[in-house]
């Protein structure tokens, strides 16, 4: 799922400096699960913002809301009436949710309250790690199910590089070398022969975001 981390509150305070009444909107999906933007975080951030502004003698009113999933238009539109009452919106959903609001409420400033970090998995409670970069053409079949695009610092398709040392990455010393993991995994599966196949360079400009905005259109689903 999408993993995010709350922005430092002083940065958020700078965005909100000109406003005295805002809506703070969380999201009940991914950011709730990674404890960055659910109802609890909304409550905490709202309290922090109010205190910070009280302290400098410039009170702020913060309305709080947490739609189930901010990236769906219907959920976003449910906020219409509330948004009319405020001067700006602070959204602590992921970057997608922020933009859903922007699309539906073009006249009001909308600020992000979290940094959308990556697509990742939970390692243990409170620890998340990147697993996918949404590159647009999945090669996990060739690499034993371990993604070198998200897990190799150099995104090598035919690794490892010379910097792989004792199973660790030379760029980020604490990280496992993705190609070591790939090798170990293929060995376990008795599929080392897969490494003999050269994985061709990815067509970043066609499948991935280098060619600009990507879009999925399912004609069969359109209404």
């Amino acid at each position: 799922m999408i993993k995010a981390e709350q922005k430092p509150i002083d940065e958020i305070l700078k965005y909100l400096n000109p406003y005295n009444k805002i809506l703070l909107s969380g999201c009940g999906a991914c950011v709730t699960v990674c404890h960055a933007g659910g109802e609890k975080e909304v409550e905490l951030l709202a309290s922090g913002l109010r205190m910070a502004r009280q302290k400098i003698g410039k009170k702020i009113e913060v309305l709080e809301v947490t739609p189930a999933r901010q990236c769906e238009p219907e959920f976003a539109l449910e906020l219409s009436e509330t948004i009319e009452k405020v001067e700006a919106v602070l959204s602590i959903s992921c970057g997608v949710g922020v933009q859903t609001l922007v699309r539906h409420f073009p006249k009001i400033p909308i600020f992000p309250g979290v940094n959308t970090s990556f697509l990742g998995e939970t390692i243990t409670h409170g620890v998340w790690e990147e697993r996918c970069q949404a590159c647009g053409n999945c090669i996990l079949e060739k690499t034993g199910g371990i993604c070198p695009i998200s897990r190799c610092a150099k995104q090598l398709l035919n690794g490892p590089c010379g910097g792989s040392s004792k199973g660790k990455c030379e760029i980020k010393k604490e990280a496992d070398c993705a190609w070591q993991l790939i090798y170990d995994r293929l060995k376990t599966l008795n599929q080392l022969y897969k490494l003999e196949e050269i994985i061709p360079a990815k067509r970043w400009g066609v499948e991935s975001r280098d060619s600009g905005l990507r879009r999925i259109v399912r004609e069969d689903l359109k209404v």
Partner: peptide, 12 residues
């Protein structure tokens, strides 16, 4: 209805 099934509570 509010549960996001995040597994926080079973873990803790």
């Amino acid at each position: 209805k509010k549960c996001a099934v995040c597994y926080t509570c079973p873990r803790l």
